[in-house]
Computed example of a mutant assay.
Amino acid sequence: MKTMQERHQKFMAAKTPEERNALMPEHMKATKEAMRMMQGMSGMGGDMAAYHQMMEKRMEMMQSMMQMMMDRLPGTIEK
């Protein structure tokens, strides 16, 4: 998750579309890795408190990933 956020910050700090395009493969790789990790979380069972905590973490990751997708849309990058 931390890696994905660091790559997103680099992406947002890019000043030109060319710089953002150059960072996109790295950013997409981190996003795919986070999605794989979330899929692995869904099979956990057992303790309800642990399950609740895992679900909160998963929701945080999903919100962060959605924000990153929104930030990649044209016209949404603030200067």
Results as ranks from 00 to 15, higher is better:
1 M>L: 12
2 K>P: 03
2 K>Q: 15
3 T>M: 08
5 Q>K: 15
5 Q>R: 14
6 E>P: 00
7 R>S: 05
7 R>A: 05
7 R>Q: 09
7 R>F: 10
8 H>V: 03
9 Q>R: 12
10 K>C: 04
10 K>S: 06
11 F>G: 09
12 M>R: 10
13 A>S: 14
15 K>W: 09
15 K>T: 13
16 T>S: 11
16 T>E: 08
17 P>Q: 10
17 P>T: 07
17 P>F: 11
17 P>C: 03
17 P>L: 08
19 E>H: 06
20 R>T: 13
20 R>F: 05
20 R>S: 14
21 N>H: 07
21 N>C: 04
21 N>S: 12
24 M>T: 14
24 M>S: 09
24 M>R: 08
25 P>N: 04
25 P>T: 01
27 H>W: 00
29 K>R: 14
30 A>C: 06
31 T>S: 06
33 E>V: 08
35 M>C: 05
35 M>V: 02
36 R>M: 07
36 R>Y: 11
38 M>K: 04
38 M>H: 04
38 M>I: 00
38 M>L: 12
38 M>F: 08
39 Q>K: 03
39 Q>I: 01
39 Q>L: 08
39 Q>V: 03
39 Q>Y: 15
39 Q>W: 12
40 G>W: 14
40 G>K: 07
40 G>N: 11
41 M>S: 09
42 S>V: 01
42 S>K: 14
42 S>G: 15
42 S>R: 15
43 G>D: 06
44 M>L: 12
46 G>N: 08
46 G>S: 10
46 G>P: 07
48 M>V: 15
49 A>I: 12
50 A>I: 12
51 Y>Q: 10
51 Y>N: 05
51 Y>R: 06
53 Q>A: 11
53 Q>N: 10
54 M>P: 03
54 M>V: 15
56 E>W: 15
57 K>P: 02
57 K>V: 11
57 K>A: 11
58 R>T: 08
58 R>P: 03
59 M>Y: 04
59 M>V: 12
61 M>P: 02
61 M>K: 03
62 M>V: 10
63 Q>W: 07
64 S>D: 11
64 S>P: 01
65 M>Y: 01
65 M>Q: 04
65 M>T: 02
65 M>L: 13
65 M>W: 01
66 M>P: 00
67 Q>D: 09
71 D>H: 11
72 R>T: 02
72 R>M: 12
73 L>F: 15
73 L>H: 10
75 G>L: 04
75 G>I: 07
75 G>K: 05
76 T>K: 07
77 I>S: 09
78 E>C: 01
78 E>P: 00
78 E>W: 05
